[in-house]
Amino acid sequence: MSVIELTNVNKSFGVDTSKIDVLQNINFSAQKGEVSLIVGPSGSGKSTFLTIAGGLQTPSSGQVVVESETMSQLSPKARDALRLRKIGFILQAYNLVPYLTVAEQFQFVDRIKTQHNLSASDLNALLQDLDIANLVKKYPSELSGGQMQRVAIARALYPDPEIILADEPTAALDSERVAVVGQLFQDLARQRDKALVVVIHDMRLEKYADHIYEILDGRMKQAS
């Protein structure tokens, strides 16, 4: 069953002569238990696609359905709630709260989403997998780019979302860590029945994906 479904989605910015079509007639769906990889060069519309799929932006036309809820029919509040409960965003610019330590980033999640977060032992296992368990007392400014990126991944996974939308989650990682993250994503899909949608500009996660799509100048086509 698809948990995210985009039908005939278009997105353009500007008007008249300065109008640019960033996404054109996108049809896409993601299922539980699968990793979908969307590959495209810089500026091809990957982030725009992901934010529309996650309800952060509204499409110029077309329809987005997430967990059987039509996004355009939800109030902004309901969209927030859906995002909080169901969607984990791993953002391109790591986006940790600068004045919270790594451990406090998770404590903060506990305050705004009081239930159904990962158990302490699951969180610990996740931090071990990502090799950041020894960083919990540090502030983001004390971390390297790759460490920040891995903390951001853990932060997004901590609320145990059904859907994980990741924007270049491996950009700052070396190939060893890329493998760890790729394996983690695959396990989340296979073992915990999550839907993962990952946009990326290279093929380094290829072997962990169930579906691969290519995006070029706002048009998407299935690669395999």
Binding site: L82, L84, I112
Partner: peptide
């Protein structure tokens, strides 16, 4: 910062 938190679903 708040924009990030909003993206993560933190209520306004």
């Amino acid at each position: 910062n708040y924009a990030v938190l909003r993206a993560q679903g933190v209520p306004a």
